[in-house]
Write a protein that binds this DNA or RNA. Structure first.
Lengths: 190, 190
DNA sequence: TATGGTTTTTTACATTTGTCAAAATTCCAG
DNA sequence: CTGGAATTTTGACAAATGTAAAAAACCATA
């Protein structure tokens, strides 16, 4: 990423970054990710190509920002101050489910057009995991400890949640909340 | 991948593919993956660029072939006909360890130059997991079953092994074989 | 509302990418 | 051998990529 996202964004930058995200989102529904060029993105967003390169290294970089943007703006909001470790999976599940319902047509169209796109699907899975990771971090202090190294335990916990979510929401298994939760408990052997 | 790897390869194709792999390997030690262009690869391999594109879609495609090539040629060889499920982790560990020792300088140099390269490191992790997956498949019929869906259990098992290997060999924790094995057992709660 | 510094956008350019069809080479049946 | 089919290599081209520095827009302050 060329643009420094650590410092607070100006109104201009926000608008421009937003335009590129919307343009990408639109194109993802009509072209697969592989067939999207920086040219097309800029045309759709209404900016010359050099502007794109002021913010991003390439389209992969934009996709990464796109996920982060969604996770921070749409999913990691209105979280309760504290949750019971036992209910972690339920909370994560609900958040993803809600998002899926609210953005149904959009998600469906993007999924349909990109199910064969290797890079895109990998990136999606990876960012689903990253979402779980951020979620976990918020409540980590209340999570049960064991005799494993902290980092290893954290990674494993996140892996398990991401695995179950991936099967439920990306591979599209028709599990309800309770079944999903049962698998989660079984894999953690708690 | 443009070239059809399912049918048996001709001598020519083998030589050419080999040259590109060697060229990539050399460049990975001097330039990071991001700074490697198809131009450089072809220059190093001694082929015009169009030849490259007869075999691969792009450099990412070559990298993928490179891993598969290594896994099939160097790691998934001389495997025992049968292993005890309890010793699965030991066997995988030994295979990776052996490979690391035999290719010490090469691995070290590539690691050093690419530790900051996002795409490369992701691809490496993913292919380490894929190696475990293939390893597991060979012995799947002897592995213990449970009441979880088969595919979910398999994915989880592979995730756990890949997680531990990643910590041991990629993140570079100084765990010996026994410690590594203990973590594996603990995460599977067996 | 003028001014100066900062951020954002743009133009123009050099490089890299990926494709195509023709040329060269290899393969193999007779 | 040999001639024709299949495979591999190649040069030349059009398109996409990424960069540098100039131009414009923005914004705080006097």
């Amino acid at each position: 990423m060329k643009y420094d996202t650590s410092k607070p964004m100006t109104k201009n930058a926000k608008r421009t970054l937003g335009s590129f995200c919307i343009a990408l989102n639109e194109l993802l529904k009509t072209d697969g990710f592989d067939n999207i060029s920086v040219n097309k993105i800029c045309e759709k967003a209404g900016y010359p190509r050099a502007t794109f390169y002021n913010y991003f290294d390439d389209k992969y970089d934009l996709l990464e920002f796109f996920w982060t943007h969604i996770i921070n703006m749409k999913v990691l909001v209105n979280l309760p101050e504290k949750i019971e470790p036992d209910n972690f999976m339920r909370n994560v599940y609900d958040k993803v489910y809600e998002f899926g319902v609210e953005n149904q047509e959009n998600c469906r169209a993007i999924f349909y057009k990109n199910k064969g796109e290797n890079y895109f699907m990998n990136s999606l899975r990876y960012n689903l995991r990253d979402f779980v990771y951020k979620f976990y971090q918020k409540y980590e202090k209340d999570m049960p400890k064991g005799d494993l190294p902290d980092d290893l335990r954290r990674e494993h916990f996140v892996d398990v949640v991401a695995l179950v979510l991936n099967y439920r929401f990306i591979k599209g298994k028709n599990w309800d909340r309770e079944e999903t939760y049962r698998y989660f408990r079984a894999l953690l052997k708690e």
